[in-house]
């Protein structure tokens, strides 16, 4: 086989939210594709667990809460130059709009929108994302369609999509690509302990039935991220890839 255009060999990639779920799998898959990883998350213990499942040498873990300005600054200072940034940190935030408090709304926005944008800003401002690098934001199909109870969450995810397009234009000159992924329901460990899922798991069963190809696996999202980080997608920017197992409603 000739040189694999999907290889991440020689690339340094920062991934947030690497303690669990999609972020954790992204760290693992990218390392298996040859990248040197910097993984960020709030829990050292969880990051260590992720590190133990990664392949290759030279990976680093940095702990911190990205909604805390000081932590964000510390992360940006410690990162160094990277070829890719993947923003996986996020919360689902379930609440019907009539029950939403301002505090809740600000928290969900702080984690899902403010943190990834401010981190990206800081890295770009200090020229830490190399030319022909790639930035990937995690949106959601909830940003494309109406779902009960996630009015604020879907707004944060739609905001990421919108900013993706603007940032793609701003960074094209340096060949830095900015893309977004909109997965539907992915079966992470977190999902199984979600309060909505606790109990008889009727909701989860119903969700599985809705998706002709089943629910997503963290690997599915991680593989799409590998594609968006690799040179295979060097001409793709400003886009959102929808991945939903064929769900129609």
């Amino acid at each position: 086989m000739k040189k694999n255009p999907f290889s991440l060999l020689g690339k340094v990639v920062l991934v947030t939210g690497a303690s669990s779920g999609i972020g954790e799998q992204t760290a693992i898959s990218c390392s298996k594709m040859g990248a040197t990883m910097i993984i960020a998350g709030r829990s050292q213990e969880n990051l260590d667990a992720t590190l133990s499942r990664m392949e290759g040498q030279g990976h680093r873990a940095i702990t911190g809460d990205l909604t805390v300005a000081e932590d964000l600054r510390r992360l940006a200072d410690a990162v160094g130059e990277v070829d890719g940034v993947v923003h996986c940190a996020g919360v689902r935030g379930l609440s019907p709009i009539r029950m939403v408090s301002e505090k809740f709304m600000r928290e969900v926005f702080a984690i899902n929108y403010d943190a990834p944008i401010l981190l990206t800003q800081r890295l770009l401002f200090r020229n830490l994302i190399r030319a022909r690098g790639a930035i990937v934001f995690l949106s959601s199909t909830a940003a494309h369609l109406g779902v009960h109870g996630v009015g604020i969450y879907s707004a944060t995810k739609a905001a990421l999509r919108a900013t993706t397009r603007c940032l793609a234009l701003e960074q094209a000159k340096r060949g830095i690509r900015v893309n977004c992924l909109s997965p539907d329901l992915v079966e992470t460990r977190l999902l199984r302990v979600d309060p909505q899922v606790a109990g008889p798991n009727e909701w989860l069963e119903e969700q599985r039935k809705r998706h002709p190809l089943g629910l997503g696996e963290p690997e599915d999202v991680a593989n799409a991220i590998v594609y968006l980080l690799s040179d295979a997608s060097r001409w793709m920017t400003g886009q959102t890839i929808v991945m939903d197992g064929g769900v129609t409603f």
Binding site: D220, N223, A232, M236, G238, D244, G245
Partner: peptide, 26 residues
């Protein structure tokens, strides 16, 4: 992009359209 859509890496992607245009339509 075709390779990606053929491969197991995209096994959860169906009924989608990938726009690959160097940002033309952005």
């Amino acid at each position: 992009a075709v390779v990606f859509l053929m491969a197991g890496a995209s096994k959860w992607i169906t009924r989608s359209t990938l726009i690959i245009d160097g940002g033309l339509t952005v």
